[in-house]
């Protein structure tokens, strides 16, 4: 009797393990299905059914085929870096800032990978995402989340369920090719921040892994990858410059550091009028100067 019970229990246990496995598989498929349904980019008619942070990425992913010549990737620094309208005027190239506030290298990689229907000539990678993080664990967790959200977009877009069900109006987003036109001005009052140093800032391992993937992807798709450091007096320094220059050299990439004294002088950056928030981001006036400079730089190269 006892042996019979044991046998029964053993069988039941085996069944339960099998059941859990089957349940996980079924739910994996359901997740993929839900992701397909939820993905606002898939149908191209609901690109605004996203959180504000993802608005520019969704807009970029739904642009007409081969319409983007220059894709700018990066965090909030990228979103004020280049004025696409002016850039197009100067170069004849259509630029689109595919930025997200706090974008990390993993997100930049997945976004670029998802732009199947575009063959940009250039990808400008704003470098703040490469040197901003000093916490490997946080970077790893964020990258893992980005990976899961890429695998199952429902994890990213589920937040728009009210809009999808018609319970709420989707937000009206004027993307202006991803550019954040900021007119306010708050002067940068700190001193010179680019004092020469031999030291190199540390780039997180996870960031490096995804950066290498971006480099590889650009090579495969014949895209010229250019690293650009926006003007950020409050957090940029020579150590970061050295790390990024080394990274560019290792990968045979062009590196444009807008923080360099000579470059700032050439652009005519005015600490009084060209910053939005005291040295964290440039404002519209600063963006115009940066755009003029980058236009010249990219056309003369």
């Amino acid at each position: 009797m006892k042996q019979e019970e044991q046998e029964k229990r053993k069988k039941n246990t085996k069944n339960l393990w099998g059941e859990m496995f089957a349940f996980a598989v079924v739910w994996g498929i359901v997740l993929l299905g839900l992701s397909f349904i939820c993905n606002p980019v898939r149908t191209r008619n609901r690109p605004t059914y996203v959180q504000e942070r993802d608005a520019y990425v969704a807009a970029a992913l739904t642009q007409p085929e081969n319409s983007i010549d220059v894709a700018v990737l990066g965090d909030s620094e990228a979103m004020v870096l280049l004025w696409p309208e002016l850039f197009e005027e100067r170069t004849g190239k259509n630029a689109f800032i595919v930025g997200q506030s706090g974008q990390i290298a993993a997100e930049a990689y997945y976004t670029l990978r998802d732009m199947h229907n575009q063959s940009p000539e250039y990808v400008l990678l704003e470098t703040d995402m490469l040197v901003a993080s000093t916490d490997e664990r946080k970077e790893m967790i964020s990258s893992y989340n980005a990976f899961l959200q890429e695998l199952f977009p429902v994890l990213r877009y589920h937040v728009m369920w009210k809009e999808s069900m018609g319970l709420k109006e989707p937000p009206v987003i004027k993307h202006d090719r991803g550019f954040g036109k900021r007119l306010a001005a708050e002067p940068y009052t700190g001193g010179e921040y680019m004092t020469s140093s031999q030291k190199k800032a540390k780039i997180m391992l996870t960031t490096s892994v995804y950066f290498n993937k971006i480099v590889k992807l650009c090579r495969e798709r014949n895209i010229r990858l250019v690293l650009v450091s926006g003007i950020v007096p409050n957090s940029f320094n020579y150590e970061k410059h050295n790390a990024l220059q080394a990274l560019a050299d290792e990968n045979d990439l062009t590196y444009i550091d807008l923080n360099e004294v000579s470059v700032r002088e050439e652009m005519g950056i005015d600490n009084e009028t060209d910053f939005l928030d005291g040295g964290d981001h440039v404002n519209a006036s600063g963006s115009i100067k940066v755009t003029e400079y980058l236009s010249r730089k990219l056309t003369t190269e």
Binding site: L31, L34, Q51, E52, R53, D54, N145, Q149, V154, L155, R156, H158, V159, W161
Partner: peptide, 9 residues
């Protein structure tokens, strides 16, 4: 999955 307050935003 659908109603939980998690993820970006």
């Amino acid at each position: 999955l659908m109603l939980g307050l998690y993820g970006p935003g």
